[in-house]
Each structure stands twice: as C-alpha cells, then as structure tokens.
Computed example of a mutant assay.
Amino acid sequence: MALQDRGAVPNSTSKAWRDWRRSAPWWLITGCVWARIGGPRRGRLGGGGALLDSPPPPRLPSTPGFNRPVLSVEPSPLAQRGSYVALQCSAPVQAVRFRMQKVGIQSSQVEQGPNSVFLWNQASFFIDYISEASAGPYTCRYLYKASWSRPSLPEELVVTGLYPRPAFWAQPGQVVAQGGSADLLCQSHLGLPHFAVVKERRVFLRMNSSGSLISFRIQAMTKNHVGTYYCYGYSPLSPFLWSHPSKALMLEMTDAAISPAIFFSLAQLSLAGLSLLFFGRLGTKTLVRWWSRRKPPGPGEARV
C-alpha cells in the first residue's frame, strides 16, 4: 500500500505499518521508536490531582508574617566600649528592604536595602562607636511583597569595660580529671551582685549572688567544658553594662581520675627508684676503686 503522507504514522499492528517501515527514512523510524519506548514517561494522577511520577512543584515562600529573620552581632555580642560592631539581619527570602530597631525605642528605627545585588537576603547595620547608649536588645524585619515580616528574636548587645575587672579562679585547680568536679569562683571588688561567665566570647552562664562572691559549679568534667573562660560583673539596674573581663582562666582535662591511694603508691615507687639508682651508682664507684687497688703492679711500678 502506497503511503500518501510520510508524516502520518500507521498503527504498529497493521500491514500498513510494516509497509511504511520499509519505505520510511531511517531517522523517522528511529524517532517514532524512541517516542514510544524511550521518551519521557507521563505521570499518573493521584487522588489530589498531582503527578505521582513527576517531581514536586517548587515550594513557594509562605506568608512573610510566618518567617522570622535571623539577627546576629559580629564579631561578638560582647563589645568593648569604644569599639564597633555590625548587626547582620538575614532573611529566608530575597527581601527589598530591612529595618533595624532597638527594642522599646521607636525612634531608633533604621532602614536600608540589601548588602549587594548578590546578597539580596542580608543587610548589615554598623555601629561605628560603642557607648553605653548602644547596649540593649535589638530586632530586625524585612520587607517582602509589600509586607513587613515579624521581628526577629531579640539579640542582646552587651557593652563591657564599665567597671574594674573581677577576680576569677578555679578550685581545686585549672586541671580537672575527666568526670571530676570543679568550682569557678568570681569576686567583684565593687560588690556587684550579678555575674556572667563567658566561654569563647559567648555567654556561658549567668548567676545572681547575695554578696560580691559567686561560685559556678561544674559537676562532671567533659571535653565540652575545656576552654578559656572569663568572668564579668554587672549591676541589676544596668544588665547590659558589664565590667572589664577578668583574667583568662583556661580549664584543662586529664584522661582519667587518679585516686589518692594510687597517687601515693606511684610517689613511693618513684622515690624507691631514685634511691636505687643513687646507691647503685655509689656502689659501682666503690667497687671500681677496690678492684683497682687489688691489681698487681707491673714491671717498673712500685706498690703504694
């Protein structure tokens, strides 16, 4: 049967298909076969009308009111008076504007655009000179599709260097056995009743005291407690204005605890070994002298 139109493909079960396959070009036959067995599969519709075999549709951002930005302070939320910091607000979507505000002070609102065309979801607000007025909690928002998001969780900016440094030490010492306990003691020379212990420039613990001395207890020493610590004192009337940091206190951990009995036995063995070494060398020298005196004199030598 002669085909009037080579572009029309007959049914594969009919004689016309076999005749068409003999007369059609090879590239057309290859395309038809690929379309039947090797082409993209069609997805099956599920109960909700979604394609079960196809990838899920891209997830659209939810309502901005349910997406909080993340606020951080760089290089640290503990800033020395006279230094500078950057408040960085990060949004989960590409934002148009950002707004920074100190909690409770409406007049402190500042707005700006993203950092650059490559970082549409971030904005940095700089404080060039840290003073007492800079201390306090901050929040930020971002503008997305003509709507402002919910505020971020508050980030506290603490200004240090307002009072003299407190004394800071560890009992029984800075080297603690694994699983052992230690007390970190901090004392303010001005009688400040509130204290904070900072590890690696992050607040580790805060405590209040009825006097000027406070003790931070470590119940069981682990590798997470190893590091450098500082202590600060502050007044309850100004919780974001702290003293100068104390001298650095470095906690170290030994592999295992050594009981007093084992320690005493090791000390005895060490003393016994030193005594044996001393008397052994003394006896060797005495024996050498005695043996040299017993040696008979050679020809031409006089016996003493």
Rank of each mutant, 00 (worst) to 15 (best):
L3M: 13
L3R: 04
Q4T: 12
A8H: 00
A16N: 01
R18V: 12
W20M: 13
R22Q: 13
S23W: 01
P25L: 06
W27Y: 10
C32R: 06
V33H: 09
W34Y: 13
I37G: 09
G38S: 02
R41V: 13
R44W: 11
R44S: 13
S54Q: 11
P56F: 00
L60Y: 06
T63C: 07
P64R: 03
N67S: 11
L71W: 03
E74V: 14
S76E: 04
R81L: 15
G82V: 04
G82Q: 01
S83E: 05
L87N: 04
V93D: 04
R99V: 07
R99D: 08
M100T: 02
M100E: 05
G104N: 08
I105K: 15
V110N: 07
V110S: 10
S116M: 10
F118H: 11
Q122A: 08
Q122L: 12
A123H: 00
A123P: 02
F125Y: 07
D128S: 15
S131D: 09
S131T: 15
S134V: 10
P137D: 10
T139L: 08
R141N: 11
L153I: 10
E156P: 03
L162C: 14
Q174Y: 03
A177E: 10
G180T: 02
D183A: 13
C186P: 00
H194F: 13
F195A: 14
A196H: 03
V197K: 01
R202S: 11
R202E: 06
V203R: 09
F204K: 02
R206E: 12
S212E: 15
S212C: 10
I218Y: 03
Q219G: 08
M221V: 04
H225L: 00
G227L: 05
T228P: 00
Y229M: 09
Y232G: 09
G233F: 12
S235A: 14
P236C: 12
P236L: 14
F240H: 14
F240M: 08
E252N: 12
A256N: 04
A257Y: 12
I258T: 12
A261F: 11
S275N: 04
L282N: 05
G283K: 00
T286Y: 09
V288I: 14
R289Y: 12
W291E: 13
R294E: 15
K295F: 03
K295R: 15
P296R: 11
P296W: 00
P296K: 10
P299T: 07
A302F: 11
R303A: 13
